[in-house]
Write a protein that binds this DNA or RNA. Sequence first.
DNA 1: TACTTACCGCACGTC
DNA 2: GACGTGCGGTAAGTAA
Length: 921
Amino acid sequence: MSKPILLLVDGSSFLYRAYHALPDLRGPEGQTTGAVHGIVAMMKKLRDDIGAEHAACVFDAKGPTFRDEWYPEYKAQRAPMPDDLRAQIEPIHEVVRLLGWPVLEVPGIEADDAIGTLARLGAASGHQVVVATGDKDLAQLVTPDVSLINTMAKPPERLDEAGVLEKFGVPPDRIIDYLTLMGDAVDNVPGVEKVGPKTAAKWIAEHGSLDGVMANADKIKGVAGENLRKALDWLPMGRKLVTVRCDCDLDGHVPGWPALGALALKPVDESGLAGFYGRYGFKTWLKELTGELPAPKTKAAAPAAAPDASAAPTPPAAPLERRYETLLSWEQLDAWLARIEAAPLTALDTETDSLDGMQARIVGISFAVEPGRAAYIPLRHEGPDAPEQLPLDAVLARLKPWLEDASKKKLGQNIKYDSHVFMNHGIAVAGYAHDTMLQSYVLEAHKTHGLSALAERHLGRSGINYEDLCGKGAHQIPFAQVDVARATEYSGEDSEMCVQLSELLLPQIQAEAGLNFVYEQIELPTSAALARVERTGVLIDASRLQAQSHELAQRLVALEQQAYEIAGQPFNMGSPKQIGEILFNKLGLPVVKKTATGAPSTDEEVLDKLAQDYPLPAKILEYRGLAKLKSTYTDKLPLMINPATGRVHTTYAQAVTVTGRLSSNEPNLQNIPIRTAEGRKVREAFIAPPGHCIVSADYSQIELRIMAHISEDPGLLRAFQEGQDVHRATASEVFGVPLDEVTSEQRRYAKTINFGLIYGMGAFGLAQSLGIEQKAAKDYIDRYFTRFAGVKRYMDETKSRAAELGYVQTLFGRRIYLPEIKGGNGPRRAGAERQSINAPMQGTAADLIKLAMVAVQNELDARGLATRIIMQVHDELVFEVPEAELDWVKAEVPRLMAGVAQLKVPLLAEVGVGANWDEAH
DNA sequence: TACTTACCGCACGTC
DNA sequence: GACGTGCGGTAAGTAA
């Protein structure tokens, strides 16, 4: 306690904080005084509390510093100091001096650097240094002789070395590294995107320092890891910028410098201060000063007149001159109608009030027939500035003949969505000839296919960002409230970009016969068929699901109680983290394996194993299974019933998976349980209306059949040609027993092996799913390959072909790119190799069922039948069939499905009928 | 500093 | 093996 104290106040950091944190105080002359008030209060308190002998209050000087030289964008984003704060700067300097503080303001040197320099000098001269700041950056200065105090925090916090470590998770000498990784938005110093305090501290803890992190950049996973790699070049400069300099030259700026005596805290200038308090209306302090009793504070609250930040400059215009017209009169509309009537191909885009195609209503429509030109018809824009618009219904009536004329060819981005939207207004658009999303999907399935991504990739143009237009999150406004002029630019651009994209992409597709087949004969017709399926929806027995939910809820409560009793305390059974805490810390169960993040794993495999010796894991497993059923299915599905149709309408994503499969969302109808009895019950709620049945038709062993076809393995071909049970046949070969002596266990093994092969599983994966030693699994695989040498040959060939070309193909010419089969590191490359085996089979299966769906739909239409496709689940089509059409469907649908391709083995589709989806299997 | 949003990891459903 | 969804937890971003 004997060391003298040097107290350094970061005046600039408190300036802003006091200004923002305090109410808008006014002095007698109406001047804003909030910041002055805040600073005075703090300086008084600091002086009283710290008992310093030497002190300085340091401010940033005006003008550039060395950091601006290193990095011109430094603090460039920072809004200019508000006028009413600027006006308080001089008074603050004045009053701080009156309070007896040396004030320091050094041109060319920021307050931080001056403080750093003073702190080092003070420590060297035997002082205990206290730095008062609201800025975390100065934590880098902390040493045994230098501590930090933040008086703005609710309980003022003092940070010594241990405190810094506790608060930031890194020691003071790693604060620079920590700040470098995070960057500083306020000073416009970038760090690594998506890295905040937690991630920065974690990385530094893992790798020791910024240099360690940078050296191991390739090992860091996730988006943040990618961002780190992108930032590697920048980080040294970032580090330079966030480093506080402790070697500044302060000569000539402090009277009496370099003797520290220059920084002696002087007595308060009472008369000067009284005058100041009087001028600023600080009555309480004035009375305090003159010895009177304190009076209650007066606050003259007045709303701050915050001027809007000036709008961001708009980017310079692109080279191609673009003219988009807003159609507000019939004359304008008719002129454009004449253009699209005459055009060979028109791009079309709708703006709506919902992302859900089944619910969306039109807000505006845009057209384009050539690059650079587009028209937008605002129809339901609202707001004070919205112009008089043409009436929606009348415009749609005018456009309807053109929209429904199949000879007028149209083009769009994700046309399935737009066709729903028009259908919501009673218009069945015909003549959709192209979809840029599907074009992109056929060319490069592994990339993303949003319009802005396509524009960026192919046109080198970013397009107006939807979020710039409407905002995001809670602040997003409906499109109808977007300014019509801006909406015209946005929507017009969408249509116009479609024109350009198609001109670019279509020739690339047409240059390859296979791709062209996939695009024209598979994807485009599938899009139309899917629109029908989505629109039809599926009938759900909500009350049945609710009853199931109820029952599940009761069982869950019971399980919960039992689990709490075993654990001796309640916990969240849905949280792996809390489960881990109870299981491994409280109850002391052995940790079987860890997750990628290093936490003890509580996955099914682990709990299964632990369940052999302990009671709780089994309860958790059962709970998990039931909770999943309840939350995902029995609770959720009834909520997804469309009130207008009384049915559930999923959306099929046609451009998501790399293999060509569809995916289904909101709700996902492709993962409704089937394996367990409890899960299957959910399928009982998928029902048909009175007088109808559910019919399910699924391809039998489609991927194995495709494997037989592609590999031409004689054994496999024969098994299918002779109509054998393939798994039994496989078992017979692998185990070397006659067909009729295959045991059920042998058949089960063979079945798993077959699936493993299709999925490109190695010995490891097979061992896991069979629960056997890896060596035994390898033996089976080897035996399989000697018996089915053709399969082995196919796999080797496809792998090397994939490595050569960088992609594999389906039977119909769909391409699946595997960029990592050439580059890529060990495991990724192995993954790509597995993909190269699996993708042609899975992709061909996807092609086949798409063709089947189109063929069946066409036949239903041609015959004018009322049977409707209601779902597609990878190898299965589900129908809602009037009883009168049941016989036809049972006979013809399997025939149509089997007939979409002639393979070297028969395609077989099996059909089932029932009152609900469960029964139909 | 408090609230909202975004993302990640986990678990699990299907094929 | 692939895919997608939903949940809990935490980090980041934003407004006050």
